[in-house]
Design a protein around this nucleic acid. Structure first.
Lengths: 145, 145
DNA sequence: AGCATTTTGGACAAATTGACCAGTCATGTT
DNA sequence: AACATGACTGGTCAATTTGTCCAAAATGCT
């Protein structure tokens, strides 16, 4: 049960802030910008990756790049104490992009990303058929405004 | 009115796919992985940036890194034809991270990220006071499961 | 004070980048 | 068919960056 998460200090956070703005910034440039030795940035970055504080690097893409994708947010109500079971089932659905517990009128909020309307439709059906899901409400995300 | 967006071809998409998985991959490595000359990758990448298909590079951070942040999804109902006005007002609220029109029981879906519960509370109040907002339902996102 | 860890500044070879260039290929045009 | 255009290739080159060392200095902890 190794669960003690690494707690980033101020320098770590400054490194991360820079990398969030420019994930391809060179270590040399970072070290200059932060006023520390290059080796230090290198060590910190290694540690941030090892400890899982940083998950990886990626590229930000224009919003409509994946134009074919269907996005929606689905509110889910779970009956009784079956939440854990339901979560396990939901986790197995690839199109569920993120899943949060919530406190409002609903129990779970699922972020759905499907690659077609038929995939999307299948996901809805699958979710509603899960034992313990008593109610749900889905809002298709249309244009981003 | 220059609005004609650059349409990425297959090679562009393969480059982007690789960069999504590893945003720090070197051009040399990309060129080897994709089987094209380095100059080609270099040119494509430049063009993808120039045309705004790629917005920039960043780092993926552990979900609970910004632990102090309060996240929620807010469903909003708008009365009559005031949607455009309401959107304009909502767009001025910094804590509204993303905003989509939708087709379900609601008219808008807002993704909220505040840095404290009091900020969050203020946002809720502001939204509800906007003229044209007839109803809303907010779900605080608790743990990610 | 004494020890462990981190940071620093320096070094070095290897890798990567940016900028070129001439030649080839595919495409569409006249 | 001949041509112009643009993209791709494979190559070079200098400059930058990276990975990997090292010893000394600084820092933190007991």
């Amino acid at each position: 049960m190794e669960n003690a998460k690494y707690i980033p200090d101020d320098l770590d956070r400054r490194i991360i802030a820079h990398l969030r703005a420019d994930g391809r910034a060179s270590l040399s440039r970072l070290s200059k910008a932060l006023g520390v030795a290059r080796g230090t940035v290198q060590n910190r970055l290694d540690r941030l990756m090892e400890t899982g504080t940083l998950l990886g690097f990626t590229v930000r893409v224009r919003e409509d790049y994946d134009a074919q994708s269907v996005r929606a947010v689905m509110m889910i109500e779970v009956v009784g104490k079956s939440t854990t079971q339901v979560i396990r089932r939901l986790r197995g659905i690839a199109e569920i992009y993120s899943l949060h517990t919530t406190n409002g009128n609903w129990d779970l909020v699922a972020n759905i990303r499907a690659s077609s309307l038929s995939d999307f439709d299948r996901v809805l059906r699958e979710v509603r058929m899960i034992d313990g899901v008593s109610n749900s409400e889905t809002s298709l995300l249309l244009s981003s405004v």
